[in-house]
């Protein structure tokens, strides 16, 4: 059973076809990577999966339910959590409060006017923070966190509604190599323990080839390759995209 089935997704901005007829599926408990050079359409594709951008045409089904047409908040309630490339957290709240906020929303307690929010779902929030190794920093102001810690906090927030699919946009960008390794191991653990399926974009090739079960490669809006890390590595078109290829054009007046 596929967790997510994407079919014939298209999106244009002005005259530019940012995403052009992309189809793929995310298997249950799969760790699927989406890679490609800058401007390949990864971000646009990614943002359509949680309703942030609406596609021009195409369909995205989460365990059979259509997502296209739903705003991000609805997609989240359907069970798709996400992290952002540039971390988006609530800077005026503590680490703990950030997670509590997500839990309050998950339990539909947003309209409560009387109780103190700080006292709600503390244990659950703490458990989530513990899961991502942030328990010791629960009381800190979010604005003072190191970048790698913000990424882990985002992961805890994304896990608050027990998502079935997790979208991670550049999860290790701005992290030290050791931290990257830790974060990807943690992600793999979560996939195993909670039965979550993960789609992530990433530019660190060590992370991609070291951790993904399968890799999708996009270039100029189109999906050009999909397969196991070994298959993708052996694909000449992918190599041409990443290194460029002399065959693509005649070197006239080359230096």
């Amino acid at each position: 059973m596929s967790a997510l089935v994407v079919e014939a997704l298209c999106k244009s901005f002005g005259g530019l076809r940012a995403v052009d007829d992309v189809s793929f599926s995310l298997g249950e408990t799969e760790l699927l990577a989406l890679i490609g050079p800058n401007g390949a359409g990864k971000s646009t594709c990614f943002n359509m999966l949680n309703g942030q951008i609406q596609p021009d045409v195409g369909s995205i089904r989460l365990y059979g339910d259509e997502i296209v047409g739903c705003p991000p908040r609805t997609v989240w309630r359907m069970g798709v959590g996400r992290t952002f490339q540039i971390t988006a957290t609530f800077s005026s709240m503590t680490v703990m409060e950030n997670v509590q906020m997500a839990l309050l929303s998950h339990h539909r307690r947003l309209r409560a006017l009387l109780p103190f929010a700080g006292g709600q779902y503390r244990d659950e929030a703490m458990a989530l923070l513990d899961r991502v190794g942030m328990a010791s920093q629960a009381g800190r102001a979010c604005g003072t966190l190191a970048y790698g810690d913000l990424k882990r906090l985002e992961l805890a927030i994304a896990l608050a509604n027990e998502p079935r699919v997790l979208l991670m946009d550049e999860p290790t960008a701005g992290m030290a190599p050791r931290e990257r390794l830790q974060l990807m191991r943690l992600t793999a653990d979560i996939v195993r323990d909670k039965g979550v399926s993960v789609l992530f974009t990433e530019h660190d090739m060590d992370v991609v080839f070291g951790h993904a079960d399968r890799i999708l490669v996009m270039n100029r809006g189109r999906l050009v390759a999909a397969g196991s890390p070994a298959e993708v590595r052996a694909n000449t078109e992918v190599q041409a995209i990443y290194l460029g290829s002399g065959a693509l054009y005649a070197p006239e007046g080359a230096a």
Binding site: R73, F84, S105, N161
Partner: peptide, 13 residues
């Protein structure tokens, strides 16, 4: 106020 993006992404209207 802090982050519309994140708020909408955790189900807040």
């Amino acid at each position: 106020r802090d982050s519309v993006l994140r708020a909408e992404a955790i189900g807040i209207h």
